[in-house]
Computed example of a mutant assay.
Amino acid sequence: MFGEKRIVDNRVFLLGLDYLYRDAMKGHEVGELLPCARRVAQALEIFPGDLPVEGYYTESPELTEYFCLVRALQNVPESSKPKVVSLPEFGRLLGVVSSSIFGRPIYEGNLLPKGQDPLSQALADSVPSWTMESLVTLSSMIAHEHDDCSLVGLAARSKDAVVLTATRESVVLYARTIFGSARKKLRYMWEVDKDLSEAAARFVQTFNRLFSEKLPAPKKRHAEDYWHACKKNKILGRCVRIGSDVTKKPVVHYHWAVYQEKVLTAHEFWHPEIWTTERYRLALEGNNGRPQL
């Protein structure tokens, strides 16, 4: 006999995928990619700078070090490439940061590329007229037109600003948990859009191949996995800077964040300082709804 139905729709699936990605990625960043970044930085004689630590990289000293090292390497001119091109550590780091799971790799005269996902493209195409509503719409169009299967590209297809904010915060630098079931068998209903699940399959396959991981395929048989992963995912307070207006003095930065009134809601704002998830969550404490910035 079946009891409660648990629906896995686009939002539940994508937030579940986001959680699984983050959980797996942290381990690879600390265990594999941090030593690579250290070796490349040593060869180039560069050191991590003092800068705001964004996303989940405040969660441990190792993640913070990795974030700061990669940020420093992203600012190294491409002319330094001959010094490290023969290092296997550089090859691995380059392979990860240029992966399609982060979007299309764009080189801007620097050693490491950055991923151009549909949200980045939407920002570039609509500067300086940025509004959340227009960017959500435009990024969705771009994701479909370019058949983008990056993590942010998948979120863009859903036209869900909350999911788009959460996933973009996850990749700001570029888990399989099953709960015990209740006595009555629960039904997990897979209601993810067909084109989204097909594009997501390519993201999952690329990620699993890149890191020898086993994220579950985005199919009906794994609906329960994605349901529980979504429920484990804590996205309230995630905040990510997605653009900057360099024509203003001082420079002002464009952010998206997630807060809650009655439901989770995406918040867009400009600020002369870079707001991180850690800072935004502190601002949420003691506030009902959107914080006063």
Rank of each mutant, 00 (worst) to 15 (best):
D18W: 02
F13D: 03
P113S: 09
Q74N: 14
E224G: 04
L87I: 09
V163P: 01
K249R: 14
Y280A: 04
P218E: 04
R168F: 09
A257H: 07
E32H: 11
V84I: 15
R22Q: 13
V252Q: 11
G153A: 02
E273Y: 07
A201V: 00
T277N: 01
L282G: 07
A143V: 02
A283I: 00
H146Q: 14
L73M: 10
G55V: 10
A257R: 05
R11K: 13
V30M: 12
I142M: 02
F269W: 03
V162I: 09
L151V: 08
K249Y: 10
P113N: 05
G16S: 07
A161K: 07
G91L: 09
E65G: 04
Q292D: 13
G153W: 00
I142P: 01
R209F: 05
R238D: 09
S181M: 11
I235T: 11
S79Y: 03
Q74H: 14
F67Q: 01
M25C: 08
E45Y: 05
R22N: 14
P113D: 05
E191D: 11
Y66R: 01
P61H: 06
K232W: 07
K159W: 06
N75S: 15
P272E: 09
E169M: 10
S139M: 03
L282I: 07
D125V: 00
K114W: 08
A217P: 00
A223F: 03
L112I: 03
L34S: 06
